[in-house]
Design a protein around this nucleic acid. Structure first.
Lengths: 233, 233
DNA sequence: CGAGCAGTTGAGGATCATCAACGGATGTGG
DNA sequence: CCACATCCGTTGATGATCCTCAACTGCTCG
């Protein structure tokens, strides 16, 4: 019995392409690793030495300009794959936003294993194609949306991505949702290409308009999900 | 002999993973198609019915907001792959910027073929991973760079991507390059998340500073490539 | 209690968008 | 061949949006 048998993302991650025997082989070259919030797993520009599956927690992918400006270019959740297989350098850093647990592989080992298991590569391809689509849609937000549209879009996206962990839909009123954001205000700003002050002002505006409540820093209660979607443009 | 034998992108496109026999099979399910500048091959939001390899020309991938704002989220060149295999809807429209020639496949046929040819899927995976990296780096530009940095970055990127067709490096002075842009000013604005007026002003500023010459609408002579890279931030 | 951190609020200003007029190139018809 | 229209790009004036700088608030933790 491999530890994979107990893995909570077993049926959602790319590993779902493998049978028991193959899974044992994959398990032999990987190991789980715990990461605390704020810790980095991969650094931008370094040679790609490891890849991983996310088991628990939320991590960010980010790039920086030389003078220190940051842009968060992706957010990964349990069952998502991270890292750059098949050579090259890591295009972006990977840092935990919450405490996290990942299943890591040496990139070379993973590459070799993947090439021998087309089913795994296929899963990875589907996942990568989906991620590319999602990323390109986010570019529309970065390039063409206003600050208010950006913040509203962010909250809508969070409500969708966090469903299950960190998001609860009110049983009586589906228009009402409760989110626990894995982001600080600065990180939200870095996702949206805004400053922290602008994000803050947009949050208080949404609060003033009665679209959300803000019980604490990381909590958002969406009172009017439809209104939020309308704001998202 | 298949028409693939004569294909100019034969050794660069994903087809390079196939041997003669396999290529003949792929050739049987595809056909070449000519597209005139401005014509669309795929529309955003429609069901994904075809995929293609680019043989000649340059095409844009774009998404639009409901109220008509456009963001160009990708540009594809000869040997690049376009379309969304493995189900779902097309995340972005594909439109020719120049007259183009593509090798199209019905998505279902391509999907089935790919699943039987892991080498092809592997090439497609490598290409998709590279495209995702490139796209994420472009997000840094959209979210965090100023108009002047955006335009300079755009010209640097063009000088690199067009090398060969549409870009000539001066034999005597490698710092001097001549580009023929496949974009109108409006399209450049749609790539960079700016307005046409801002793009125009940045071009004339670069001209005034002696970094470029603008002999015609689509021509750019870069006089100081290093200076341009410095401006790109 | 005070220090430190994250977030909020305010004032002022830079950047970029908007609106409008104009210029140059190309094409058409008289 | 020249008026005229059209398209694309440039330039200018003005203003909105969002950034910058600064002060302040509320929390948490020693």
């Amino acid at each position: 019995m491999t530890s994979c048998d107990l893995c909570v993302v077993r049926n959602r991650a790319i590993c779902s392409a493998l049978d028991g025997r193959e899974l044992a082989a994959l398990n032999a070259i990987g190991r789980t690793r715990n990461i605390v919030a704020g810790e980095s797993l991969i650094w931008e520009g370094e040679e790609s030495v490891l890849v991983a599956n996310v088991i628990e927690g939320v991590l960010k992918l980010s790039t920086n300009t030389e003078d220190g400006r940051e842009q968060i270019v992706g957010v990964v959740y349990p069952s998502d794959f991270i890292g750059r297989p098949f050579g090259g350098t890591a295009g972006q850093g990977v840092t935990a936003l919450t405490d996290a647990k990942v299943c890591v592989f040496a990139r070379r080992d993973f590459d070799a294993f993947a090439r021998e298991h087309p089913g795994l590569e296929h899963k990875l391809l589907e996942r990568t194609l989906g991620e590319l689509d999602r990323t390109r849609r986010w570019m529309l937000l970065l390039g063409r949306k206003s600050a208010s549209e950006k913040v509203a879009s962010f909250l809508v996206e969070m409500a969708e991505r966090l469903s299950g962990a960190g998001c609860r839909i009110d049983a009586e009123d589906p228009n009402r949702r409760w989110l626990v954001l894995p982001f600080s205000r600065q990180q939200i700003a870095d996702v949206l290409g805004l400053t922290i002050e602008t994000v803050s002002r947009q949050f208080t505006r949404l609060k003033t308009q009665g679209i959300v409540e803000l019980p604490s820093r990381r909590d958002v209660v969406v009172l009017d999900f439809q209104g939020l979607v309308a704001e998202a443009g």
